[in-house]
């Protein structure tokens, strides 16, 4: 019974965020992508490269499965929390995710945007990757120009991200996060000490394997990782999704 309530909570939040999802007014075929003889996108084609020989992550992507969006421990990841963090996580989960920033239209942070099953566009340039999220119409930047992570002075939901290439894997480090964001919908805590490492590997044209590693000794007893997947979304476009339902939070009843 509790589980179904929790799913209902997720469903409410999902509905709150993706209202325009069914408005498929954009059917423009994505130019320049590999296609099979019958014209269908060839998602098993090799991963494209940029002119400097690095994998090109550009394109529209979608989370393959929203189970990690709900909870990063899905699939057997062991997340050992310090007592305060465990207490807070349990409270949030048992309270049906009431209090999540998305109910006030603030949206998501690094890990829950990564795992969300709504569209996002990667725009890769030599110096920066921008990720445009359909949900909430937000974006995030990852600097690739060799700059170091700054000493955080102004914590934020999205933090500050730098990336570097390890072979064909883009390794992104993020700090400067605030303690207001939740790592997933069930509420694994994020703190100002949270360090997130994302390892993006574009396996072929249509698939990215993404490993998320959380290191935060103020909340977790040891670093932990979740392995998630992104699928290429051909012939799609982002639709403007401005969150206007901030009044909904008054209706979130909790437990």
């Amino acid at each position: 019974m509790k589980i179904s309530k929790s799913i209902l909570g997720s469903a409410l939040l999902l509905c709150a965020s993706f209202i325009p999802m069914s408005a498929q007014w954009l059917h423009y075929p994505t130019p320049g992508i590999p296609r099979t003889a019958d014209g269908k996108p060839n998602l098993a084609a090799p991963a494209p490269k940029t002119s400097d020989g690095k994998p090109d992550l550009s394109g529209i992507w979608v989370g393959a499965d929203d189970k990690y969006f709900r909870d990063l421990s899905t699939g057997g990841v062991e997340i050992l929390m310090l007592p305060w963090a465990e207490k807070l996580y349990k409270e949030r989960k048992e309270n049906l995710q009431k209090g999540h920033p998305s109910e006030r239209c603030i949206g998501h942070g690094v890990t829950d945007y990564d795992t969300q099953t709504s569209l996002r566009r990667f725009i890769q340039t030599p110096g920066v990757i921008a990720i445009l999220f359909e949900g909430y119409n937000h974006y995030r930047q990852i600097f690739l120009d060799g700059r170091p992570l700054p000493k955080p002075t102004q914590p934020s939901y999205m933090g500050y991200s730098i990336g570097r290439w390890e072979g064909d894997t883009l390794v992104v480090d993020t700090n400067g996060l605030n303690d207001q964001g939740w790592l997933d919908m069930n509420g694994h805590p994020q703190t100002e000490s949270t360090h997130i490492t994302e390892r993006f590997r574009r396996r072929d044209f249509g698939h990215i394997d993404l490993q998320l590693t959380i290191d935060d000794p103020t909340a977790y007893t040891k670093p932990w990782s979740a392995n998630v997947h992104l699928n290429y979304a051909p012939d799609e476009e982002l639709i403007e999704a401005i969150c206007e339902n901030e009044k909904d939070f008054t209706h979130m009843v909790g437990k």
């Binding site: 550009s58 725009i123 445009l132 937000h138 930047q141 982002l238 401005i242």
Partner: peptide
């Protein structure tokens, strides 16, 4: 911020962390 790429130019606005294509 303007990011110009072949086929698409993105504008990232600091205001509300929003963008257009």
């Amino acid at each position: 911020k303007i990011i110009q790429k072949p086929g698409m130019t993105a504008m990232l606005y600091e205001r509300d962390t929003t963008f257009r294509q």
